[in-house]
Design a protein around this nucleic acid. Sequence first.
DNA 1: CGCCGAGTTGAACTGAATCAAGAAACGTGG
DNA 2: CCACGTTTCTTGATTCAGTTCAACTCGGCG
Lengths: 191, 191
Amino acid sequence: MINSFSTYLDQYGSLSEEAELSVERISHPTHLPGNHEILKQGNTLKSIYLILSGSARMYYYHDGREITNQFFFEGEVIADMESIYSGKRSNYTIQLLEDCSLIEMRYSDLEKLFQQFHDQEAIGRKLAIACYLEENQRNRSYQKNTAKGRYFDLLKTYPDILNRVNLSHISSYIGVTQVQLSRIRSKIAAF
Amino acid sequence: MINSFSTYLDQYGSLSEEAELSVERISHPTHLPGNHEILKQGNTLKSIYLILSGSARMYYYHDGREITNQFFFEGEVIADMESIYSGKRSNYTIQLLEDCSLIEMRYSDLEKLFQQFHDQEAIGRKLAIACYLEENQRNRSYQKNTAKGRYFDLLKTYPDILNRVNLSHISSYIGVTQVQLSRIRSKIAAF
DNA sequence: CGCCGAGTTGAACTGAATCAAGAAACGTGG
DNA sequence: CCACGTTTCTTGATTCAGTTCAACTCGGCG
């Protein structure tokens, strides 16, 4: 059960008591309503957010359409790695899909912990590798599957996503039109 | 100009002199011929390899066909992050595409440096993030492009790939049949 | 010279996009 | 609590992109 950044980080390695206390010190609980935009295109993301309850998505525009690049659910951390890491303006908008209970952490504070504690840095490295592997799996899903297969792969990761997220968000995430995803779904239902 | 692991790592941050010496100490130059398999499916990768000259690819099987998941060229590091990081058997085969001049480093030696030097760990984290961002960009290429667009995106990254790699390897990398990629190419040539 | 692997090209077929219209679900104000 | 408008989802017809199977070309090499 993930209810703090410490428990979140525990998944990737163990922290010294001192580092763990520092993590708690820079953690700030918040509540934000559905539809709230944590990051707007053209701005820079300054904080990351652990989700205790609720969900969010990160999207960008291409040819005037929204394409969802990432979903975030309970126990996951909302962040645009690119913007946070580079400090540059983001091409993404991050929008809450439901009312959320969050824990906020300023990235500048976290950076200090990386510098201060070697074990914190080690966990950061492992976490980044985990993100890479996940992203690589998504690529393999594209290489070997047709849209139906990608849809199933997504359901494996997020089984209840259908009840919580718009079809159009899901469809753009797996690189297919909303219309086509609706058809795929209907074919599966009727068997 | 990348001619050692030190110069490679310099791209991501600076190392103390002590750490840099240690990096050199665990580096071993090698030459290996084209077609050599650095890793075979079912085995575990124990070393990573910086490419001074030559190229390689990493592939897996799906429905009996080879799918290339990664290319490696000069100045890049050959590794199957999943196998190396988890120590588990790999689903991938890594094959040299040309005669290669390499610098080998055992991952167990590198791990020790991560533990020993905080700045080494910091560079490792940055490197992992860079890998993640690259992989994410590949995903976006799938989300917004048709096969032609993905082909162009690949050419942006590796402009001379056509002269060095088989069409079938390239096509499976961008998730399209070799036949279709041939057609795409011919349409572009005739303008 | 003949073989072989790699690439090209054609024809038929399937998966997916597009355009468009209608049905269902949803929220807001009266 | 209902009526209305809006957004989301479904379904159909058409067009386009991509796959499959197969035959052929080309260059390298024994």
